[in-house]
Amino acid sequence: MEDHICGEIKPLIPDFHDGEIKDKELYIKISEHLKVCKDCRIELQELEELSKIVKKYFDVDEFEKDYKYHKDTEHLINRLDEVQYCNNVRDKISAYIDDELLEQDRLIVEKHLRKCIVCYKDYENLKLTSKIVQKYFKNLNFPESDVSDRVIERLDRHKSKKIAISLAVAAVLGIALFHFMFINAFKFENFDNKSLKNKNTEQSPEKKSKTEKFLPGLSF
Protein backbone atom coordinates (compact mmCIF):
# COMPACT_ATOMS: atom_id res chain seq x y z
CA MET A 1 0.00 0.00 0.00
CA GLU A 2 2.81 2.38 1.04
CA ASP A 3 4.75 1.47 -2.13
CA HIS A 4 1.73 2.37 -4.21
CA ILE A 5 1.55 5.83 -2.56
CA CYS A 6 5.35 6.26 -3.00
CA GLY A 7 4.97 5.67 -6.72
CA GLU A 8 2.40 8.45 -6.80
CA ILE A 9 4.26 10.87 -4.47
CA LYS A 10 7.88 10.52 -5.68
CA PRO A 11 7.40 12.22 -9.08
CA LEU A 12 5.81 15.16 -7.24
CA ILE A 13 8.71 15.69 -4.80
CA PRO A 14 10.64 18.16 -7.04
CA ASP A 15 7.46 20.28 -7.44
CA PHE A 16 6.85 20.02 -3.68
CA HIS A 17 10.41 21.19 -3.03
CA ASP A 18 9.98 24.18 -5.36
CA GLY A 19 6.62 25.11 -3.76
CA GLU A 20 4.78 24.38 -6.96
CA ILE A 21 2.01 22.19 -5.48
CA LYS A 22 -0.99 24.51 -5.57
CA ASP A 23 -3.65 21.94 -4.69
CA LYS A 24 -4.09 22.13 -0.89
CA GLU A 25 -5.34 18.58 -0.45
CA LEU A 26 -2.43 17.21 -2.47
CA TYR A 27 0.04 19.32 -0.50
CA ILE A 28 -1.31 17.89 2.78
CA LYS A 29 -1.24 14.38 1.37
CA ILE A 30 2.44 14.72 0.40
CA SER A 31 3.36 16.28 3.76
CA GLU A 32 1.61 13.48 5.66
CA HIS A 33 3.33 10.86 3.51
CA LEU A 34 6.76 12.42 4.08
CA LYS A 35 6.26 12.10 7.84
CA VAL A 36 5.84 8.36 7.60
CA CYS A 37 7.97 7.42 4.55
CA LYS A 38 11.73 7.38 5.08
CA ASP A 39 12.56 6.79 1.35
CA CYS A 40 10.63 9.82 0.16
CA ARG A 41 12.08 11.93 2.97
CA ILE A 42 15.62 10.97 1.91
CA GLU A 43 14.79 11.84 -1.68
CA LEU A 44 13.57 15.28 -0.61
CA GLN A 45 16.71 15.82 1.52
CA GLU A 46 18.98 14.86 -1.41
CA LEU A 47 17.13 17.27 -3.62
CA GLU A 48 17.60 20.03 -1.05
CA GLU A 49 21.37 19.26 -0.85
CA LEU A 50 21.74 19.35 -4.62
CA SER A 51 19.78 22.57 -4.78
CA LYS A 52 22.10 24.15 -2.21
CA ILE A 53 25.20 23.15 -4.18
CA VAL A 54 23.81 24.56 -7.41
CA LYS A 55 22.74 27.80 -5.68
CA LYS A 56 26.22 28.23 -4.18
CA TYR A 57 27.78 27.64 -7.57
CA PHE A 58 25.87 30.54 -9.06
CA ASP A 59 26.41 32.81 -6.02
CA VAL A 60 29.83 34.43 -6.67
CA ASP A 61 30.50 35.52 -3.05
CA GLU A 62 29.65 32.16 -1.59
CA PHE A 63 31.61 30.49 -4.35
CA GLU A 64 34.78 32.41 -3.46
CA LYS A 65 34.30 31.83 0.27
CA ASP A 66 33.91 28.11 0.04
CA TYR A 67 36.37 26.55 -2.36
CA LYS A 68 35.40 23.05 -1.31
CA TYR A 69 31.88 23.51 -2.65
CA HIS A 70 33.36 24.76 -5.88
CA LYS A 71 35.47 21.61 -6.19
CA ASP A 72 32.45 19.40 -5.44
CA THR A 73 30.34 21.17 -8.03
CA GLU A 74 33.11 21.01 -10.59
CA HIS A 75 33.39 17.30 -9.98
CA LEU A 76 29.60 16.94 -10.32
CA ILE A 77 29.58 18.81 -13.62
CA ASN A 78 32.54 16.80 -14.91
CA ARG A 79 30.72 13.64 -13.96
CA LEU A 80 27.63 14.84 -15.85
CA ASP A 81 29.82 15.46 -18.89
CA GLU A 82 31.23 11.97 -18.56
CA VAL A 83 27.75 10.43 -18.34
CA GLN A 84 26.75 12.25 -21.51
CA TYR A 85 29.94 11.06 -23.10
CA CYS A 86 29.29 7.47 -21.95
CA ASN A 87 26.27 7.15 -24.23
CA ASN A 88 28.20 8.63 -27.10
CA VAL A 89 31.22 6.40 -26.53
CA ARG A 90 29.31 3.18 -25.87
CA ASP A 91 27.95 3.24 -29.42
CA LYS A 92 31.52 3.39 -30.69
CA ILE A 93 33.15 0.69 -28.52
CA SER A 94 32.27 -2.13 -30.92
CA ALA A 95 33.88 -0.35 -33.88
CA TYR A 96 36.83 0.60 -31.65
CA ILE A 97 37.43 -3.10 -30.94
CA ASP A 98 37.52 -3.77 -34.69
CA ASP A 99 39.80 -0.77 -35.31
CA GLU A 100 37.18 0.64 -37.66
CA LEU A 101 36.92 4.14 -36.18
CA LEU A 102 38.16 7.37 -37.70
CA GLU A 103 41.28 8.73 -35.99
CA GLN A 104 39.31 11.52 -34.28
CA ASP A 105 36.69 9.14 -32.84
CA ARG A 106 39.35 6.64 -31.81
CA LEU A 107 41.11 9.31 -29.72
CA ILE A 108 37.81 10.35 -28.07
CA VAL A 109 37.04 6.74 -27.13
CA GLU A 110 40.56 6.09 -25.81
CA LYS A 111 40.50 9.25 -23.70
CA HIS A 112 37.11 8.37 -22.25
CA LEU A 113 38.05 4.76 -21.52
CA ARG A 114 41.00 5.96 -19.45
CA LYS A 115 38.67 8.04 -17.30
CA CYS A 116 35.44 6.03 -17.10
CA ILE A 117 35.63 2.70 -15.32
CA VAL A 118 32.03 1.77 -16.29
CA CYS A 119 32.73 2.14 -20.01
CA TYR A 120 36.09 0.45 -19.66
CA LYS A 121 34.36 -2.55 -18.10
CA ASP A 122 31.87 -2.50 -21.00
CA TYR A 123 34.73 -2.39 -23.47
CA GLU A 124 36.45 -5.38 -21.82
CA ASN A 125 33.22 -7.42 -21.78
CA LEU A 126 32.43 -6.64 -25.41
CA LYS A 127 35.95 -7.52 -26.48
CA LEU A 128 35.70 -10.80 -24.58
CA THR A 129 32.30 -11.52 -26.18
CA SER A 130 33.78 -10.94 -29.63
CA LYS A 131 36.67 -13.30 -28.87
CA ILE A 132 34.34 -16.00 -27.51
CA VAL A 133 32.14 -15.75 -30.64
CA GLN A 134 35.19 -15.96 -32.93
CA LYS A 135 36.44 -19.01 -31.01
CA TYR A 136 33.01 -20.60 -31.30
CA PHE A 137 33.03 -20.15 -35.08
CA LYS A 138 36.61 -21.44 -35.32
CA ASN A 139 35.86 -24.61 -33.38
CA LEU A 140 32.77 -25.56 -35.38
CA ASN A 141 32.81 -28.93 -37.07
CA PHE A 142 31.87 -29.58 -40.65
CA PRO A 143 29.44 -32.50 -40.90
CA GLU A 144 29.64 -32.99 -44.69
CA SER A 145 32.74 -34.80 -45.89
CA ASP A 146 32.05 -35.37 -49.60
CA VAL A 147 30.92 -31.91 -50.67
CA SER A 148 34.36 -31.08 -52.15
CA ASP A 149 34.47 -34.36 -54.07
CA ARG A 150 31.01 -33.71 -55.46
CA VAL A 151 32.04 -30.21 -56.54
CA ILE A 152 35.19 -31.52 -58.24
CA GLU A 153 33.16 -34.21 -60.06
CA ARG A 154 30.65 -31.58 -61.13
CA LEU A 155 33.45 -29.35 -62.38
CA ASP A 156 34.87 -32.22 -64.47
CA ARG A 157 31.43 -32.87 -65.94
CA HIS A 158 31.02 -29.16 -66.59
CA LYS A 159 34.39 -29.06 -68.34
CA SER A 160 33.56 -32.08 -70.52
CA LYS A 161 30.20 -30.56 -71.36
CA LYS A 162 31.90 -27.29 -72.24
CA ILE A 163 34.34 -29.11 -74.54
CA ALA A 164 31.48 -31.04 -76.17
CA ILE A 165 29.52 -27.82 -76.69
CA SER A 166 32.61 -26.11 -78.14
CA LEU A 167 33.13 -29.03 -80.54
CA ALA A 168 29.49 -29.01 -81.55
CA VAL A 169 29.57 -25.26 -82.11
CA ALA A 170 32.80 -25.62 -84.13
CA ALA A 171 31.23 -28.38 -86.21
CA VAL A 172 28.09 -26.32 -86.87
CA LEU A 173 30.19 -23.32 -87.78
CA GLY A 174 32.34 -25.47 -90.05
CA ILE A 175 29.32 -26.84 -91.83
CA ALA A 176 27.83 -23.38 -92.12
CA LEU A 177 31.06 -22.00 -93.49
CA PHE A 178 31.37 -24.84 -95.98
CA HIS A 179 27.75 -24.38 -97.03
CA PHE A 180 28.24 -20.65 -97.39
CA MET A 181 31.40 -21.10 -99.47
CA PHE A 182 29.79 -23.78 -101.66
CA ILE A 183 26.67 -21.69 -102.33
CA ASN A 184 28.73 -18.61 -103.00
CA ALA A 185 31.05 -20.49 -105.28
CA PHE A 186 28.05 -21.86 -107.14
CA LYS A 187 26.48 -18.39 -107.38
CA PHE A 188 29.78 -16.94 -108.49
CA GLU A 189 30.09 -19.59 -111.12
CA ASN A 190 26.53 -18.89 -112.35
CA PHE A 191 27.19 -15.19 -112.29
CA ASP A 192 30.37 -15.69 -114.29
CA ASN A 193 28.57 -17.89 -116.76
CA LYS A 194 25.78 -15.37 -117.24
CA SER A 195 28.13 -12.44 -117.70
CA LEU A 196 30.24 -14.44 -120.10
CA LYS A 197 27.15 -15.45 -122.01
CA ASN A 198 26.06 -11.83 -122.26
CA LYS A 199 29.49 -10.86 -123.40
CA ASN A 200 29.53 -13.67 -125.93
CA THR A 201 26.30 -12.49 -127.53
CA GLU A 202 27.83 -9.07 -128.01
CA GLN A 203 31.09 -10.48 -129.30
CA SER A 204 31.96 -10.69 -132.94
CA PRO A 205 31.68 -14.09 -134.54
CA GLU A 206 35.46 -14.27 -134.62
CA LYS A 207 35.78 -13.68 -130.89
CA LYS A 208 32.90 -16.03 -130.15
CA SER A 209 34.62 -18.82 -131.95
CA LYS A 210 37.74 -17.96 -129.92
CA THR A 211 35.82 -18.24 -126.68
CA GLU A 212 34.34 -21.52 -127.73
CA LYS A 213 37.78 -22.64 -128.51
CA PHE A 214 39.20 -21.88 -125.12
CA LEU A 215 36.10 -22.45 -122.94
CA PRO A 216 34.02 -25.00 -124.82
CA GLY A 217 31.93 -25.90 -121.77
CA LEU A 218 30.65 -22.36 -121.32
CA SER A 219 28.79 -22.13 -124.60
CA PHE A 220 25.10 -23.05 -124.36
Binding site: N125, L126, T129
Partner: peptide, 24 residues
Protein backbone atom coordinates in the same frame (compact mmCIF):
# COMPACT_ATOMS: atom_id res chain seq x y z
CA UNK B 1 26.20 2.13 -45.29
CA UNK B 2 29.26 1.68 -43.06
CA UNK B 3 27.38 3.56 -40.32
CA UNK B 4 24.56 1.02 -40.45
CA UNK B 5 27.06 -1.84 -40.27
CA UNK B 6 28.69 -0.20 -37.22
CA UNK B 7 25.44 0.21 -35.34
CA UNK B 8 24.07 -3.21 -36.29
CA UNK B 9 27.27 -4.90 -35.22
CA UNK B 10 27.32 -2.98 -31.93
CA UNK B 11 23.73 -3.92 -31.19
CA UNK B 12 24.24 -7.55 -32.23
CA UNK B 13 27.29 -7.84 -29.97
CA UNK B 14 25.34 -6.22 -27.17
CA UNK B 15 22.60 -8.83 -27.53
CA UNK B 16 25.13 -11.68 -27.58
CA UNK B 17 26.84 -10.21 -24.54
CA UNK B 18 23.55 -10.07 -22.63
CA UNK B 19 22.96 -13.72 -23.46
CA UNK B 20 26.32 -14.92 -22.17
CA UNK B 21 26.77 -12.36 -19.37
CA UNK B 22 27.00 -14.96 -16.55
CA UNK B 23 29.97 -16.53 -18.34
CA UNK B 24 31.83 -13.24 -18.65
Amino acid sequence: SIGTVKSRLARARGKLQDHIRPYL
